Computed example of a mutant assay.
Amino acid sequence: MPGCSVESTGSFRIPTRFQGDALATMEAKYGDGTNAGPYTWSSYQQFGNSFAPKYGDNLITLTPEFFNAIHDGARVTLTFRFWSGAAVTYHVTKSGNSVTGTAS
């Protein structure tokens, strides 16, 4: 997952090199360790509703539903877990309708 991107809450895409691997889960947490996203009873977010891979486009998309539930100005740590066992950390910060994302 390269670099930094700035996009809107309606269309946020994370460039991803899947290299033949498949995405299994996404975990979302605020800096204080509390769960982030629409499903706050767990840090793991719903596949397809909060996030989805687009393997042919080499992207992971985060949905408007996910960002609607994120506190404005808060940094959220996302951990993407793949079926190979690999885990990748990415950070997003929402400011109004703008989102900044950075790879760890």
Rank of each mutant, 00 (worst) to 15 (best):
R13M: 08
R13V: 06
R13T: 10
R13G: 08
R13N: 12
R13P: 03
I14Q: 09
I14R: 07
I14T: 00
I14Y: 02
I14K: 07
P15E: 05
P15H: 06
T16C: 08
R17W: 14
R17P: 10
F18E: 00
D21K: 13
D21F: 05
D21H: 09
D21W: 07
D21R: 09
A22P: 10
A22G: 09
L23P: 02
A24R: 12
A24Q: 13
T25L: 12
M26C: 11
A28F: 01
A28H: 00
A28N: 01
K29L: 10
Y30N: 04
G31R: 07
G31T: 12
D32I: 03
D32H: 07
D32M: 01
G33Y: 02
T34P: 01
T34S: 14
N35V: 09
A36R: 06
A36G: 03
G37H: 04
G37P: 07
G37L: 01
Y39E: 11
T40I: 15
T40R: 15
T40N: 12
W41N: 15
S42V: 10
S42E: 14
Q45W: 02
Q45L: 07
Q45A: 01
Q45P: 04
Q46I: 07
G48I: 08
S50Y: 05
F51V: 05
F51S: 05
A52I: 06
P53Q: 01
P53E: 01
P53F: 08
